[in-house]
């Protein structure tokens, strides 16, 4: 049984707010294997979040299909967990209550909920803040609660929208490595949006570069490396530097202003 693979074909998304139509995504086809870690980079406003929300089932596709495990998706499901760019924590729930929410919905017993949640709270270095409300947290802390909340209910597919964007470098690196551990140990499929090229290459097995809006797949840069190496060895390796540069080059072509004919 395969589980956690995603198949996107001829995807198109047009936002229509009555007055104006915005084509966010155009003719995007892409297959992601079960257990794969895919990074997505692209210019701001190219449709990355839209793509993620479409996979999550929050938005209706305008055209094309998205299938998970061979089945066309029909709305959101607990097989897919999103880490929102704007966190979207429930402000009326404490950190602990936010992280246990998904487990409550699954009917997990109270003790088990708390111990599972505590594990992810500690992993995100949020120990001592269990009883705080989101309004009392910094942006970086909210972001970590959002990650813990999504990991806690154990979705097969993780859809992460710039999840480390608000964190400082040391914390960011530590969480990157923890995410890699989780991905490997729990065999999750990860779609990871970031605007940090180094982060994308470091984490991903493949990086998809999107064109400017209407966004579509521009190129896919594979990066297979020996994961037994440590961070220092990886980021100084020739292979890493070359891959990073080719992603950069491709991305820069999209962000530079179009040359008028």
């Amino acid at each position: 049984m395969s589980d956690g693979d995603i198949s996107i074909s001829n995807l198109e998304k047009v936002y229509d707010d009555g007055a104006e139509k915005t084509k966010a995504i155009e003719d995007l086809s892409f297959d992601i294997d079960s257990g794969e870690f895919v990074g997505v980079v692209g210019p701001s406003g190219c449709g990355k979040s839209s793509l993620l929300y479409l996979i999550a089932g929050f938005l209706e596709t305008t055209d094309g299909t998205i299938s998970v495990d061979g089945e066309p998706i029909d709305g959101p499901g607990t097989d897919r967990g999103v880490v929102f760019q704007d966190y979207a924590l429930f402000p009326w729930r404490t950190v602990m209550e936010n992280v246990t929410y998904g487990l409550e919905e699954q009917g997990v017993s109270k003790e088990e909920r708390r111990s599972t949640a505590q594990r992810y709270i500690d992993m995100m270095d949020l120990g001592g803040f269990e009883d705080r409300y989101p309004k009392e947290l910094s942006g970086g802390m909210k972001q970590r609660v959002a990650i813990a909340r999504t990991l806690a209910y154990d979705p097969k597919i993780l859809l992460m929208d710039e999840p480390f964007g608000a964190l400082d470098q040391p914390l960011r690196e530590s969480l990157q490595d923890q995410l890699l551990d989780i991905w490997r140990d729990l065999e999750k499929t990860v779609v990871f949006i970031t605007h940090d090229v180094e982060e994308a290459v470091y984490l991903s097995e493949r990086v998809m570069i999107m064109t400017r809006r209407p966004g579509t797949k521009k190129t896919v840069v594979p990066f297979d490396l020996d994961r037994s190496l440590d961070r220092e060895e990886i980021i100084t390796s020739d292979k890493f530097v070359t891959t990073k540069n080719s992603v950069w080059k491709s991305l820069r072509e999209e962000t530079q202003p179009e040359v008028q004919p």
Binding site: A56, G57, G81, V82, F90, Q106, R149
Partner: peptide, 9 residues
Amino acid sequence: YIRSARMMG
């Protein structure tokens, strides 16, 4: 908020 809740079941 609604989307978060729906995805969590």
